[in-house]
Amino acid sequence: MNHVDLPLWVTIPGTLLLVFGGLLVLIGSAGLVKLEHFYARMHPPTMGTTLGTGCVLITSMLVSSALEQRPVIHEILITVFVVMSAPVSAMLLMRAAVYREHRKRPEPTQPLDDIGGTIPPRD
């Protein structure tokens, strides 16, 4: 694939980071399928989003730096953007879920004065 020989300081951390990141993302998405409730399902993909993306982007930075013979750090853009945007979208989604489940809950059927209690007269 890469027809250039990558140096050892790229391949050893790159291999470890790629295996680690791939496993993290896979476990996170499997948790998205497996877990029971929505609030439990919010959590596992976040692991893949932040840590898995970080691992892959560090590897990408290493490979690009080795290929171009100079430090290439523009992958930091994606890292910063993803790390900044993931909590915002998770929080909005959580608020939407809380609101929708609150609306689905049945209303109290009878008003208070139909149950039989008396409302004290106002003076």
Binding site: G14, A30, L32, V56
Partner: peptide
């Protein structure tokens, strides 16, 4: 060592594709 890195890249790609399949199932 390059071959090991290539295998790791294949493994990570496979993991990401399987993760996309999991997300599709939930979708």
């Amino acid at each position: 060592m390059n071959a090991v890195f290539d295998y790791a890249a294949w493994f990570a790609s496979l993991c990401f594709v399987l993760a996309m399949l999991c997300a599709l199932v939930r979708l």
